[in-house]
Design a protein around this nucleic acid. Sequence first.
RNA 1: GCGCCCGUAGCUCAGCUGGAUAGAGCGAUUGGCUUCGAACCAAUAGGCCGGGGGUUCGAGUCCCUCCGGGCGCGCCA
Length: 647
Amino acid sequence: MFHFIEKKISDRVAELVRAQFGADATVALEQPKQPSFGELAIPVAFHLARQLKKAPKAIAAEIVAALGPLEGVSALEVAGNGYINVRLDRGAYGLGVLRGGGESLPQDSGKIIVEHTNINPNKAAHIGHLRNAVLGDTFVRMLRANGRTVEVQNYIDNTGVQVADVVAAFHYLEQKSAADVEKLLNDPAVRFDYYCWDLYARVSSYFNEHPEALEWRHQTLHAIESGTGELAQLATTIADAIVEYHLKTMDRLGIHYDVLPRESEILHLKFWETAFEQLKQRQAIYFETEGKNKGCWVMPASAFKEQTNEDTEDSKVIVRSNGTVTYVGKDIAYQLWKFGLLGKDFYYRPWKTVYITSAHPQPEGGGPHFGGAESVYNVIDSRQSYLQDVVVAGLRALGYNQQADRSIHFSYEMVVLSPGTAVELGFELSEEDKKRPHIEVSGRKGLGVKADDLIDKLIEKALEEVDSRHPEAPADERRQVATQIAIGALRYFMLKYTRNSVIAFDFQEALSFEGETGPYVQYAAVRARNILRKLAERGQALPDFAHELNQAAFARQLAAEDFWQMLLIASKADSAIDRAVVSGEPAHVARYAFQLAQAYNNFYHGYPVLTEESPEKRTFLLWMTGYFGAQLERTLGVLGIAVPEYM
RNA sequence: GCGCCCGUAGCUCAGCUGGAUAGAGCGAUUGGCUUCGAACCAAUAGGCCGGGGGUUCGAGUCCCUCCGGGCGCGCCA
């Protein structure tokens, strides 16, 4: 509702400013510093002051005079040095909310692809991957809540070095056959992704000590690329198994995908070759004949760097002198496909719970269509921004400027461990590491907190609490509630930080259920439900709000400043989500959820609903309870957090 | 060396395209359960917004510079 009014006023003022002053000022609305100033502040007079060479205060007064009465607005006041403060008509506003006025505004504008998770299928997922997946998934939910059409992709690099290393480790280091690995996979006593986690760390350190063993990697990569032989078979088995583990881990967090595009298909369907032709034709890349990049196809640095000293040394190699393509090259091809610009498509088949790409036509034919989006968000950590710039430059060099503008690197900072946490996990730190403010999570070193371990730990902690509060409840139900709380805590923890803030992971903070946490918000939602449940238990029916609450009743009840402020906050969900979408910042939604919960907890504490004696007030309080509850649940839904039956 | 990010309360972080008196949570101190269950609420203390210049009617926010920290800059992905 708030968002609706906001837009209406903003549009109206912008129109007037154009007509009255012939100026094109952006009419952004602000929240007044103090609630007593009103509900909205329009600072437009300040922006006009410079152009018109007039005092802001005078301009503001002119605008107010020209504006006349506005629907839903009870007063416009010039305040401070030139603010226009807006006071809303409380009765009309309350009634508008009750009638569901302007809640959702459908605004579809073409398909948006969001790619996230993208974990190398060679080991278990860790907290760094969790941040990626939770950010991506929440952004998807935000977009959908905003009325957009979204396709979720999780890219699987099943033919890369990381997979090859684990394959080599099984084959050369452990001397295991494909049958042995198969046996290991089916052994219920073995967590295969955890096994690979250790194995990957082991082989990485082995490579460090025995550089000559790197030949294993080359052999394996070669075998994987040819797609035949035992090593290739082993790679497929391992990568598929690990991907399945990742899907299960993410499923615990409520994270799902539409399609899993795989590197192997990009290879076999020759996506790169097609892109290569385009790049050569448009002269986006050139064949280097001298210098250190001699014999390579390179992209000139001027394509992706702001300023360049024309030094060819800065160019980015796309095709190596041995004829193989780099990761960035493949990524350009993949990005072209996402926009439907490659002129090629994958084949798809259902696999587990999603669609996965295939190199061969499927018997049923038809099938789903993926890719061909209008804009693309790649959720990738900020360390890869340089490479993402190169990919975008590739699109631009091909003349796809619009698509380049709509290729968004949805970047975020990494998750690191405090030295204390690293020690707690049983890692031995070098003297150098101990001095550092934090330690980078490293799959190669096997240094990190595994996603499933953290989830399990959170569930156990939540379960202790649930057990002591609800000993009478069935055990499986208690576990269900504890799981929802644990996931709520984890998702919120990953979302409360803005994207470009480094998260220094700390168990104590992550395991907290109090204060600014997911469970705090869940608790508020549960409390609202409890009141309504209690009402039903007493055999009382919910009033017919539309019938019993008219504008005058709302005006009377909302005259109380407390109620008015509470209703305002509760009605700002759309506004908060929209702002978060525009700024690409899921943390804004998390923050709003917390503020909403705070407001509700105040309401809950200050105004006993069921014992209220005044009939009108009681009806109003019940309505507020329902509305708060609905807004809390909706916001939590956008955050991917469930509301437990009880807490 | 070049590029990007960060520096705000003891700790962890917000602060929307520059706007009115800089905010939360945790921790600390104090108070509140008579079940709409306290995973809560209330109150108090705590700040040269890293330093210095500048732009502006107005700067935590923009520009320059310095200091401190992180991350990139491969014919790895």
